[in-house]
Design a binder for these strands. Structure first.
Length: 325
DNA sequence: AACCGGAAGT
DNA sequence: AACTTCCGGT
């Protein structure tokens, strides 16, 4: 779960151990455009002199950096209660002892900045796609109706463990939302304004980028189907529960903490966080009252249909696809 | 807290 | 048809 946070963890993992360039450049960007970061000296020398920012990535990076800072600060900040599982790697890479020789380190650093840059952007887009599938909304906030806005809010709240503030944005559609300044957000929700505004900006930027890029190449037919994803499940029909579970299982990086394979070949999987999976299912089906009791009832309906069953040795929260792929 | 399956509702 | 909701019992 947790798109942007996860992205950072991933980026951090993929970086060479001592390369903290990403963090620093992000902070530098943040400092340049925002006023949040206090520490200054270490920021100037990296990134800022390389002119490596494609303009359309700026926003993404800025907002990303904002997240990074927030995540990093989270333990100290009283308001934000981000759980450790959300950012497992953030604080661990580099910083400690690094066996890399300086020259190699430099070379690696040179490249990693650019690599990480495109990697992060790609991950952001990927995560937005995933969220859109899950929520059944379009990626472009400008196209959202009020219901879509509420879904997005619910999702974002869930992502960052924010209190529920949907009420405060009840009457807004996507256009309204997009035209709101951070101050407007603050008036609606003093506690979450920053987070929501920043996260929305990521989506706006992504939509803007996507539009720009797709404008350059294949015009995507007439259908305006800019975001069509050859979605495994999307054939107009509403998604089935078993398909949904498969989707989650397919993305262990995102959902491995709430559902995972015990034996992929045999189709045996375990629901590690029943409440969470139920919440996701409810989100997808627009069933706010969904819970594990009901979800599991639906799973049990599959018993007689021969789609899912209990494994031979029945275990709590463990099920098995009768026909593993 | 899960698991189960009947019954009724959407 | 495929759940969703509710429920009494294990």
């Amino acid at each position: 779960m947790t798109s942007p946070v996860r992205i950072h963890s991933e980026s951090a993992v993929l970086q060479p151990p001592h390369s903290t360039g990403f963090t620093e450049s992000s902070l530098a960007l943040l400092k340049r455009e925002d006023g949040i970061v206090q520490s200054s000296e270490m920021l100037e020398h990296k990134a800022s002199d390389r002119g490596l920012y494609l303009s359309c990535f700026d926003m993404l990076f800025t907002e990303d950096a904002a997240w990074l800072v927030r995540v990093t600060d989270a333990p100290a900040a009283a308001g934000a209660r981000l759980e450790p599982e959300q950012c497992p790697v953030i604080d661990s890479p580099g910083l400690g002892a690094s066996p890399l020789s300086p020259t190699l380190e430099e070379q690696v650093e040179e490249r990693s900045l650019e690599q990480v840059q495109s990697l992060v952007v790609g991950e952001v887009l990927k995560d937005i796609e995933t969220a859109c599938k899950l929520l059944n909304i379009t990626p472009d906030p400008m196209e959202w109706n009020c219901g879509n806005v509420q879904k997005w809010l619910l999702w974002t709240e869930h992502l960052y463990r924010l209190p529920q503030v949907g009420k405060a944005f009840q009457d807004l559609d996507g256009k309204d939302l997009c035209s709101m300044s951070e101050e407007d957000f603050r008036q609606r929700s003093p506690q979450c304004s920053e987070t929501l505004h920043a996260h929305l900006d990521i989506w706006k930027s992504a939509a803007w980028m996507k539009e720009r890029c797709s404008g350059g190449e294949t015009r995507m037919r007439e259908g305006e189907e800019l975001w069509s994803e050859a979605d495994s499940s999307c054939s107009g029909q509403p998604i089935h529960l078993w398909q949904f579970l498969r989707e989650l299982l397919l993305k262990p990086h995102s959902y491995g903490r709430c559902i995972r394979w015990l034996n992929k070949e045999k189709g045996i999987f375990k629901i590690e966080d029943s409440a969470h999976v139920a919440r996701l299912w409810g989100l997808r089906k627009n069933r706010p009252a969904m819970n594990y009791d009901k979800l599991s009832r639906s799973i049990r309906q599959y018993y007689k249909k021969g789609i899912i069953r209990k494994p031979d040795v029945s275990q709590r929260l463990v099920y098995q696809f009768v026909h593993p792929v």
